[in-house]
Simulated scan of single mutants.
Amino acid sequence: MSSDNPDRSLASGPGRLIALVYTVFAVSAGARALFQVGTKFTEAPLSYTLSTIAAAVYIVAAVAIVRGRRTTAQIAVGIELAGVLAVGALSYAVPSLFPEASVWSHFGSGYAFVPLLLPIGGAIYLAQVRRRRSLYNSETACGGGAASVS
Score class of each variant (00 low, 15 high):
M1H: 05
S2K: 15
D4L: 07
N5C: 10
P6H: 07
D7H: 13
D7Y: 12
A11V: 05
S12M: 14
P14G: 12
G15E: 08
R16H: 14
R16N: 14
L17R: 02
L17M: 10
A19M: 00
L20E: 01
L20V: 03
V21N: 01
Y22P: 10
A26G: 13
V27R: 10
S28Q: 13
S28T: 14
G30M: 03
L34D: 06
F35I: 15
Q36N: 15
Q36F: 14
T39L: 07
K40I: 12
A44N: 02
A44M: 00
Y48I: 04
T49F: 03
T49S: 05
L50S: 01
T52P: 05
I53Y: 05
I53W: 04
I53P: 00
A54F: 05
A55Q: 07
Y58P: 08
I59H: 10
V60L: 15
V60C: 11
V60A: 15
V60E: 14
A62F: 00
A62N: 03
V63I: 10
A64I: 00
I65T: 09
V66D: 13
R67D: 09
G68N: 06
G68V: 08
R69L: 12
R69W: 10
R70M: 06
R70E: 07
T71M: 12
T72K: 09
Q74A: 06
A76W: 06
V77F: 13
A82H: 10
A82S: 11
G83D: 03
L85I: 10
V87C: 12
G88M: 07
G88S: 11
A89D: 01
L90D: 00
S91M: 12
S91D: 12
Y92S: 10
Y92N: 11
A93N: 05
A93H: 02
P95S: 04
L97P: 05
L97C: 07
F98L: 04
P99R: 00
E100D: 15
S102K: 00
S105I: 02
H106C: 07
G108I: 06
G110H: 01
Y111H: 12
A112T: 11
V114A: 15
V114L: 15
P115Q: 02
L117I: 08
L117V: 07
L118W: 05
L118Q: 02
L118T: 07
I120W: 13
G121K: 02
G122A: 02
A123F: 06
I124K: 05
I124G: 01
Y125G: 09
L126N: 03
L126E: 02
V129W: 04
R131D: 04
R131Q: 04
R132G: 03
R133D: 07
R133L: 09
R133V: 02
S134F: 08
L135K: 10
L135W: 11
Y136Q: 10
Y136D: 07
S138H: 14
S138F: 13
A141P: 04
A141D: 08
G144C: 15
G145H: 03
A146L: 00
A146S: 09
V149C: 15
V149A: 12
V149G: 12
V149T: 12
V149R: 12
S150A: 15
S150H: 15
